[in-house]
């Protein structure tokens, strides 16, 4: 079993296309993410980065192509099922439960039963409380556990959202522009945080901030017009003439 899993890539996209009203947002895209790998994705606006995440998480159905997660066809499942299979997603705009405390945010996200009736009668166990405390430490919000999420700064919301994803304990984390709107210090911290997370699970990061990508120091995929333009180390990709042409500029 584990042998088989190690041979199968964690995420496997092949020949994926999707069009909106004739506009091809994703055009014959192929991408493979291995177990424990961290991948950075760059590309100009409209390259299809967010649409790709929509496809992986079940928000958008592809017109053609294969999308496999641990060998399972993701196109047959909806968002909630895919989330429960072990894919967590952070949105471009931080999306947390603003009217709940930080603690409650993490509690709701914590891995466990997603059944409605169990949620009605559920009580918290000591392990759950411990786990939440751990995550609070990781996202550096220990002493603000009872603050309403609405009262957090932009960067703190981003971290809270990452913390909620950790609470879900996913195998694959999709992170959409995590450092947008962050201060430089916060950006550095976030890079650290993501590297820490990637020790135990696979992470896909979409980002524009090249210094952040450099901090991450991982394999980079550059998308353009819905397809892979170039793939490899950051140095390899950023010296690729096609990438310079369409994205980085001369």
């Amino acid at each position: 079993m584990s042998k088989f899993l190690e041979n199968t890539p964690l995420l496997y996209l092949d020949g994926v296309s999707v069009a909106f009203d004739g506009f091809k947002a994703i055009n014959n895209l192929s991408l493979v993410v291995e177990h424990g790998e961290m991948r950075a994705i760059i590309g100009p606006n409209g390259a299809g980065k967010t649409t790709m995440m929509d496809i992986i998480t079940g928000k958008t159905r592809p017109d053609h192509g294969t999308v496999l997660f641990e060998g399972q066809d993701l196109t047959l499942h909806d968002e909630a099922q895919i989330a429960n299979m072990g894919i967590g997603r952070k949105f471009q705009k931080p999306t947390v439960f603003e009217n709940h405390s930080i603690y409650d945010n993490l509690l709701l996200a914590l891995k466990g039963s997603r059944n409605v009736f169990q949620a009605l009668f559920s009580t918290q166990s000591t392990e759950q409380k411990q786990r939440i405390d751990e995550i609070l430490a990781v996202i550096r919000l220990e002493n603000r556990r009872d603050t309403l999420a609405a009262d957090l700064s932009h960067g703190q919301k981003q971290w809270l959202e990452i913390g909620m994803l950790l609470a879900q304990d996913p195998k694959l984390l999709l992170v959409d522009e995590p450092v947008a709107g962050m201060t430089d210090a916060e950006t550095v911290e976030t890079a650290k945080l993501l590297r820490e997370i990637s020790k135990t699970r696979s992470v896909v990061v979409v980002e524009h901030d090249m210094s952040f990508i450099r901090d991450l120091d991982v394999k980079v995929t550059c998308l353009a017009e819905g397809a892979v333009l170039s793939e490899g180390s950051l140095n390899h990709v950023s010296s690729d003439p096609k990438v310079i042409e369409s994205y980085l500029g001369r």
Partner: peptide, 10 residues
């Protein structure tokens, strides 16, 4: 307040 977050939380 954040329907999609609930959904993506599973």
């Amino acid at each position: 307040h954040a329907e999609s977050r609930v959904r993506f939380t599973g």
